[in-house]
């Protein structure tokens, strides 16, 4: 009992800290990184429900991300519908898309499912390029002004700073974590896991496979579309490769798999590692750090070499990390942490 109380207290403290950050941190750059972090958490967590719990490894989640982002942006640009209304339209649409995709892809298993999910996402990406009257094609949609959010006459926020985005992002991340938690601790989660472990056995237990697969997909797709819509309004620009590309799908599943699938905190851990790491690699902070600490002289040959190449090599290092994690921590970081904890316990005994 005291353990759960302890856990709850720790959770509340972390939450309070997160709520308080914008009050004390003024740097928009820091807030921006936090927003990206929240976005990654919610993307990874959304995939977790379908991939981690129900065991359906979609490599086409860009489809839902893109539909969410595009619908919100299109409505905002063409009809001046504010995003907090547009996002609902996006959710309805994405459920329709998910059901259509489900009806095709869920007939297939294993590698065939993976390939079908890629194909559907690619079809959507190509459609977004070609349906120029609807989506503005390859030029993408740019929305520079967000309407102020009002309740009655009172302006809650006019989105001129990053603070409202910070709270929306935080809310989104908490929402996805909350939904994952409740799925995990409900009958639904039990059915999902039964399907993941052995589809045929689950079927013989009387679990309606296609119903529960579609439910998992539906939840996952709606949450992903929310993340997509948030991305769209935050960045203010969407185009086919950035929200519908295969990269996006891979990025989404990477967060979850690196962190640890089928666990509540895996995607959070994954985002905590991946977001700062790719930013640090990209922006040459590693070299900066080495120079500042005094390990490397900025004007020496090594320093210049690192400066020239490290920024170029960040995708390479990313690839190496992926390979290493898959080979040596097949259950993700979460699995690795758990293993370490178990070992320590054993040693203690």
């Amino acid at each position: 009992m005291p353990k759960t109380i302890l856990k709850a207290a720790a959770g509340l403290i972390v939450l309070a800290l997160l709520m308080a950050i914008p009050k004390y941190v003024e740097s928009p750059y820091a807030l921006h990184m936090m927003i990206l972090l929240f976005l990654s958490v919610s993307m990874g967590q959304s995939w977790n429900i379908l991939g981690g719990f129900a065991g359906q490894y979609s490599v086409g989640h860009a489809a839902y991300f893109g539909v969410g982002a595009y619908t919100t942006m299109m409505l905002m640009q063409a009809k001046q519908i504010p995003p907090w209304i547009g996002v609902w339209v996006g959710m309805v649409l994405v459920v329709a898309v998910a059901l259509a995709i489900g009806s095709i892809c869920f007939r297939l298993r294993g590698p065939y499912f993976v390939l079908a999910s890629i194909a559907v996402a690619e079809i959507l990406r190509l459609s977004a390029i070609n349906l120029t009257t609807l989506t503005n094609g390859a030029e993408g949609i740019l929305v520079t002004e967000l309407p102020a959010f009002k309740i009655g006459e009172r302006v809650v926020t006019d989105f001129s700073t990053k603070v409202p985005f910070y709270y929306i992002g935080l809310f989104l991340a908490l929402l996805t974590i909350g939904i994952t938690y409740s799925v995990q601790h409900s009958k639904l989660g039990y059915f999902f896991q039964a399907i993941r472990e052995d589809q045929d056995a689950a079927h013989s237990l009387g679990i309606s496979i296609s119903l529960y697969k579609n439910i998992a997909l539906g939840i996952s797709a709606v949450l992903t579309s929310l993340a997509g819509a948030f991305y769209g309004i935050y960045v203010g620009f969407v185009d086919p490769p950035t929200v519908l590309g295969l990269d996006v799908s891979v990025q989404i599943m990477l967060i979850c798999i690196i962190g640890g699938m089928g666990t509540l905190w895996g995607p959070v851990l994954g985002a905590l590692v991946l977001v700062p790491m790719s930013e640090a690699l990209r922006s040459n902070m590693v070299t900066d750090l080495l120079v500042r600490v005094g390990l490397v002289n900025a004007d020496s040959k090594v320093g210049l070499f690192l400066k020239e190449n490290l920024a170029h090599a960040h995708v390479l290092l990313y690839g190496i990390l992926v390979v290493l994690v898959i080979l040596f921590m097949p259950d993700g970081l979460m699995g690795f942490v758990k293993k370490l904890a178990r070992r320590r316990k054993q040693e203690a005994v």
Partner: peptide, 22 residues
């Protein structure tokens, strides 16, 4: 101060945030 945006708008935004404020 060099920033690589890898051709992606959201990353070029990160870069701009960093350049402007940090």
């Amino acid at each position: 101060v060099w920033e690589d945006d890898t051709g992606k708008p959201q990353i070029s935004m990160s870069a701009m945030e960093k350049l402007a404020t940090r």
